[in-house]
């Protein structure tokens, strides 16, 4: 098995952990963290392909990860602000109870 394959397996395993967490936990904060972890797993792939790709000196993978980290930070800030707002209105952050728009 080549190191690239090991990196990819690592990242996909991490992605699955994040997915399982996001789908199975009912606390909204943990769901957000699961999504955050999936984003990180995707970043791992960029670095892996940058490292073992044909043109590492171009640095495109690095730059993409830097931008992804910045966007993820913005996402976390807005997401957690939303969670705090929901908690203020409903006194709960359980995902199943925020269902007033459910048909």
């Amino acid at each position: 098995m080549s190191p690239l394959q090991l990196c990819l397996l690592f990242s996909s395993l991490l992605f699955c952990v994040g997915l399982a967490g996001a789908l199975s936990r009912s606390n909204t904060i943990l769901v957000l963290l699961g999504i955050e972890l999936m984003l990180n797993a995707a970043n791992l792939n960029f670095i892996a392909f940058w490292r073992y790709g044909p043109h590492p000196e171009a640095g495109t993978g690095l730059l993409f990860v830097l931008f992804a980290i910045a966007v993820a930070a913005a996402e976390a800030a807005v997401g957690l602000a939303l969670i705090i707002a929901i908690h203020r209105h409903r006194k709960t952050i359980r995902l199943q109870e925020a269902n007033s728009l459910k048909g």
Binding site: S12, C16, L19, L23, S24, S26
Partner: peptide, 18 residues
Amino acid sequence: KRAVLGFITAGGVGGLLF
């Protein structure tokens, strides 16, 4: 129920990726 479904989905996705 959610947890079990979540694990099944994640396992499926993981199998596909692997």
